[in-house]
Design a binder for these strands. Structure first.
Lengths: 155, 155
DNA sequence: TGACAATAGATGTTATAACACGTAATATCG
DNA sequence: CGATATTACGTGTTATAACATCTATTGTCA
């Protein structure tokens, strides 16, 4: 039983199981990482979720993606992708058009302004990730990725 | 570069760095775990955050904790702990009283009803954690905990 | 002791997330 | 071919989170 995460949350009792401790430790780690991410993005007027969407749209290229494709590629499930995209559209970071064979689909594309914003952020975010996890080193990072993928296999 | 998390998020481009991939993989893993947790708790009328608060108060024992102590022990930072506790008080799961030497402090205590609810949930949550991460095994779980604590050291 | 800072907590407001439902376009099948 | 189901998306509503500000109590120090 590792003492560190218990000390951090000032929790006196031991965890019910190693699995329990791992879930809490994972959640705590991500909470810290997300909070730092939010702080870094704040001056740019973006939330981590919005940043993630812009990255997805940039990765999708010229043709863009429809709403549900964006939603399904997001890191955490988002039931209300419409209004999330609404806000990014209001900021001028993406545009939408209902111009395809199937008129149900709404194509969403990142704008030049959106790409420019991401370009300004690339180094900033890269530096953040480096500061956050760079001290682990390549071997430990690879081991972490292996374990996380193994963890997600069971659903 | 591991293919699995990329396939899962349908992301074509590789990540900018191993650190980046690890951050995304961590966030994705926790999103899945949290979503499953929320589903399990829903029939009991609790969110994961509320469940976490009740666990903290049960762990604190008879004397309870003041608002800021509860907030500081939470897994993810909560700027508005007051109304979070308000809701749990409305549900009858905790009580508050401003009865100490220092009249600024509001002591928050879990009620018998709150303890009973947690007791009903203990096995359910234990089973969930087992299903979520039990297949990793003790060695891999301990390795995961080591790496996560190492990751959180750098702040 | 009295002014000021610090602490604990509450409240007002705005933004966002969650959930259910509604609408339009397309697919399916008797 | 027409009724129904399915898919993609939007909208209305409620609950919660985020942020700043406010009050009350206590501590600090000239």
């Amino acid at each position: 039983m590792s003492p560190s995460i218990r000390a951090e949350l000032k929790q006196a009792r031991p965890f019910a199981s190693l699995e329990h401790e791992a879930v809490v430790s994972l959640a705590r780690t991500v909470a810290v990482l997300e909070h730092q991410m939010a702080e870094v993005l704040k001056p740019y007027g973006l939330t981590p979720t919005q940043y993630n969407v812009l990255r997805i749209l940039r990765g999708a290229g010229e043709e863009g993606l429809c709403r549900n494709e964006v939603r399904d590629r997001m890191i955490s499930p988002m039931p209300d992708a419409t209004r999330l995209l609404d806000r990014l559209a209001d900021m001028g970071l993406l545009v939408r058009s209902r111009t395809g064979d199937d008129r149900r689909f709404v194509r969403t594309q990142i704008t030049a302004e959106g790409i420019a914003l991401l370009a300004r952020l690339d180094d900033v975010i890269h530096g953040l990730h480096e500061r956050q996890l760079g001290h682990l080193g390549e071997a430990e990072l690879r081991r972490l990725l292996e374990i996380l993928e193994h963890a997600r296999e069971r659903r």
